[in-house]
Design a protein around this nucleic acid. Sequence first.
DNA 1: CATGTAAGTAAGTAATTGCTTACAAATATA
DNA 2: TATATTTGTAAGCAATTACTTACTTACATG
Lengths: 174, 174
Amino acid sequence: MTNKKQSILDSALYLFAYKGYNGVSTNTIAKHAGVSEGLIFKHFKDKKGLLNQTLTQWKLDFNQILEDIGNIESPQIRIQRIMELPFSIPEIQFPYWQLVYALKWQNLDLMHNHATSMKIILIEALQALRYPDTNTEAELILSYFDGFISSAVLKKDSSLSKNLLKALQKKYIQ
Amino acid sequence: MTNKKQSILDSALYLFAYKGYNGVSTNTIAKHAGVSEGLIFKHFKDKKGLLNQTLTQWKLDFNQILEDIGNIESPQIRIQRIMELPFSIPEIQFPYWQLVYALKWQNLDLMHNHATSMKIILIEALQALRYPDTNTEAELILSYFDGFISSAVLKKDSSLSKNLLKALQKKYIQ
DNA sequence: CATGTAAGTAAGTAATTGCTTACAAATATA
DNA sequence: TATATTTGTAAGCAATTACTTACTTACATG
């Protein structure tokens, strides 16, 4: 990975996230990255290819995080870790999540794999804890996840966020 | 409101919602509405003006709904009605909500007014019910709201949705 | 019925779009 | 050191963009 290639990916993620895929031109991305426009197409074939590559990096990161959570023994802690996720996102990953959710609302759901992985972890854990309707309960927690990601990424009010998390956990951990 | 003007608004809402503001050209909107492109600019000045007018109609509708909920006497039922909202949205309004949330993730938050209105209703009701931290509790319910809107509008699985609502209400109504 | 205004169109406009081409510099490998 | 490959650029491409202009048609009101 050359410097300029990485620079293109960084600029693309940032600009796609805050202006939308169709709101940024390849010309703008090139200028932001300090690179000639042609280089984008050398490295990524076309604009869609750049978008995909941009997301791939972070997707792998998050999959690793989910795998680690899945390997935790205690089902309570597995659920807790999933709930904590929206508030443990480092600020550098905010553009990634902003982009993922922006695309989700554009019917381009890259979140789908993340969501199904989390649902599997949640259902297993809830079954271990003898919850009655594990599917619904898992969906309920995932709905929180959506709302919390929105709180964390868009509002960036971390003091409120911690109270939210505590209030939620109170409802699940007696 | 002439037929053609309304037709432009309908097409614009639909296309903006499913392809994004920057993903649709005025030319496309005009063709979809069966109208000359110039008419769009006659009626709405520019593309941004069309977007605003498109949203204004439904915004007023929803404000009315919130006002009605605010006038309900029982605080329990006020909370219940807010929780039910995502699942009582008629299908014809899906494009509106899809667009509102798409714009929200594009840092163009038209949801903000809706959210603050709902928060006021929730805090008042929670205070009446002697909840301890009403602000956090209201935010928590609004986080659900975000997640549920996403469930309702994007997935459109209404049988799941009803179970979700029941599961949530169980946590608030003892 | 005359006339002013609103509703509507077709054909433009300059600027921007995603992408290609032809070529140069840098780097790796023999 | 010679050569092949990768990395990079500048200039240009046709198509599309938001928007304007010059014009016609429909309609309301005195």
